[in-house]
Design a protein around this nucleic acid. Structure first.
Length: 588
RNA sequence: GCCCGCGUAGCUCAGGGGAUAGAGCAACUGCCUCCUAAGCAGUAGGUCGCAGGUUCGAUUCCUGCCGCGGGCGCCA
């Protein structure tokens, strides 16, 4: 399988052979490359329970392993570290296996699960802003990671399309355009096919209506009433709402398309509306709820809790549902309709208490059985250069569409400054600028840990130097260029042979590490692990490129080996960047 | 008040119980008759917030404190 698991087996056997637990044989990549490629520290934790000296144990393990043809050198160091260096022949064989593997060494999950990744969460009629950036980028990556692991994954944008704001907009519009048939209770239809409002109109109306609800009690009451009627199915309101939803989705899709973020499901709170009342009735009948100040709640606190967990509100005292209610019903819907076994929510970490409540409620009510995993993989925020939440000069949240065009404009400037992609057709140049911009944006975001807040800095992200998206794209394009040139000269990749210099050996060692990195990314839902790997891979390739002049190499076998190595590097880079949602241009 | 997260190089950030804590930027020194120099090689830069504890070993796990941010039933 992977180099690390193979080596762990070897050392596990050795520990077993001297009567110690084989789990002590775990091998990791060396932290001291000057002393070895890999290390096994098992003798240290093994010493205490065995009541023995760790160096003595390490010495016996070392002797038990010695003679293994795959290992070129071993040494005992410090209090009981075992350093390992592989033979170049074995390393070459291992890489040959990676090169021949369609999955580049990464195993599939033992069991393919139906998974829903819930990310996005924009609201109908409301402009998308910076706050929607991280869930979109991280969610897209986590979806791709789980998909590659072999699961059946559906990404759900999960719109906010069913709450009080919908009623507010209906009332607001009824005042602005009272003559529309949607407001005429006696109208028998059919309603116009075209929306009476554009998404721009909605986005202007939204804050106005929202503000009025706070100031004007009559308006708020009318909005509440409209919301109830909408949810009860009043035809005119439903028809109008449907227009709101449609024009909003069109606008969202434009932004998401620019970001390369794609959803399988455009569901929302409204999707589960019909399930909510029956669900509540059932829970009430089962005695799982209670009334609290007129509201229907479900207690989710547990005696062993160290913190106070308030009950989840299923229905307000006026009978209206809350978002926790639809979240609970959505869990039920996904299990029943999609047979979902894992749901991952990529939502701001600040919502963690809410998810804790919803997940507990799902458990307590039996909606989610023990075979269903519910997970809130929270994300941090995007901050401005001052370290505070990103705002525009006038104090508003930056529109996501503006952020995207800002990055693409800066990327275009960078191309100009560096006289790159000059002489290309205008259309290709635009495309390259877009891809460079997106790589900058996404890598700038994803190389941070999922839960950290980070400072957004266009200049730094779009820089052509250092740890940036453009650096990765450059590396990938350079590799493509070499392979194109090789192909034109009729050169072909051959079997990988033993490395004879560091630049080559280090690239091989890097390429063998993907399985562990991928496993870690899956386990922690941590795309930054893959982002870091992509950077290290390109950096190792650049060193290899410096040390090994591929196209002029006179030894045909070595040149063939190098070409396979270059090809494998490109395939891994394409895979990893694709898992991050980053697309590579053909040239730049 | 209770709970959650963060505090690592001048800046932006990684870091999986292990040895000498890393990267990028910024600073400084080198390398283009050679596959894209958007690159490579090197130098310098640290009480890992503070104090305890667990451990053979703690930046990592636990407790307390300080600082910053966030959350805490009828919004989402």
């Amino acid at each position: 399988m992977s180099l690390l698991s193979d080596l762990s087996d070897v050392f596990g056997d050795a520990f077993a052979s001297i009567g110690l637990d084989r789990s002590f044989g775990e091998v990791s990549v060396s932290q001291r490359p000057d002393l070895g490629q890999f290390q096994c520290n098992g003798a240290l934790p093994a010493a205490k329970p065995a009541g023995r000296n760790p160096r003595e144990i390490a010495q016996e393990v070392l002797e038990a392993v010695s003679g293994d043809e795959r290992i070129a050198e071993m040494s005992l160091a410090g209090p009981g570290f075992i350093n390992v260096i592989l033979t170049d022949e074995f390393l070459a064989e291992a890489l040959q296996t990676v090169a021949e593997d369609g999955r580049l060494g990464v195993p599939r999950a033992a069991e393919a699960l139906a998974v829903v990744v819930d990310y996005g969460g924009p609201n109908v009629a409301k402009e998308m802003h910076v706050g929607h950036l991280r869930p979109a980028i991280i969610g897209e990556s986590i979806k791709r990671i789980l998909l590659f692991e072999g699961h059946r994954v559906a990404g759900d944008v999960h719109l906010g399309d069913w709450g009080t704001p919908m009623g507010q907009l209906i009332v607001e519009l009824s005042e602005r355009q009272p003559g529309l048939p949607y407001f005429d209770a006696g109208f028998t239809g059919p309603y116009p096919a075209d929306s009476p409002v554009s998404v721009g109109d909605l986005q202007l109306m939204y804050p106005v209506a929202s503000e009025r609800s706070k100031q004007d009690r009559a308006f708020a009451e009318a909005a509440r009433q409209a919301t109830v009627e909408l949810q009860d199915g009043r035809p005119g309101y439903r028809a109008l709402w449907s227009h709101f939803r449609t024009v909003s989705i069109e606008a969202m899709r434009d932004v998401y398309d620019d970001l390369g973020v794609h959803f399988d499901l455009w569901n929302g709170e409204s999707t589960v509306h019909d399930r909510i009342q029956p669900m509540i009735d059932r829970l009430v009948e089962a005695g799982l709820t209670r009334l609290s100040d007129g509201a229907t709640v479900i207690d989710v606190a547990d005696e062993v809790d160290t913190k106070e967990i308030p009950p989840l509100l299923l229905a307000k005292s006026d009978g209206a549902y809350l978002y926790g209610t639809s979240d609970l019903a959505t869990i039920e819907e996904r299990i029943e309709d999609l047979d979902a076994r894992l749901m991952v929510y990529i939502v701001d970490v600040r919502q963690s208490l809410h998810f804790e409540q919803v997940f507990r409620a799902a458990r307590l009510t039996g909606i989610a059985g023990p075979d269903v995993v519910l997970e809130h993989a929270g994300n941090g925020t995007v901050n401005g250069p001052d370290g505070k939440p990103f705002k525009t000069r006038d104090g508003n949240l930056l529109r996501l569409a503006d952020l995207v065009s800002m990055v693409v404009e800066r990327a275009t400037q960078r191309l100009d400054e560096n006289e790159l992609a000059t002489g290309y057709p205008q259309e290709e140049r635009h495309r390259i600028a877009h891809l460079v911009g997106m790589s900058a944006l996404k890598f700038g975001d994803l190389h941070n840990h999922r839960t950290s807040n980070y400072i957004f800095d266009v200049d730094r992200f779009t820089s052509f130097d250092g740890k940036t998206g453009p650096y990765l794209l450059y590396g990938a394009v350079r590799i493509k260029s070499i392979l194109r040139e090789a192909s034109e000269r009729g050169l072909k990749g051959g079997r990988i042979i033993a490395a004879d210099r560091d630049g080559e050996r280090n690239l091989m060692l890097r390429l063998a590490r993907l399985p562990e990195v991928f496993a870690r990314a899956v386990e922690h839902r941590a795309p930054n692990q893959l982002a870091e790997y992509a950077f290290e891979l390109v950096a190792d390739f650049n060193r290899f490129y410096e040390a090994c002049h591929i196209l002029s190499e006179p030894d045909a076998a070595r040149q063939g080996s190098w070409l396979t190595l270059v090809g494998t590097t490109l395939r891994q880079l394409e895979l990893v960047l694709d898992l991050l949602g980053i697309e590579i241009p053909e040239r730049m």
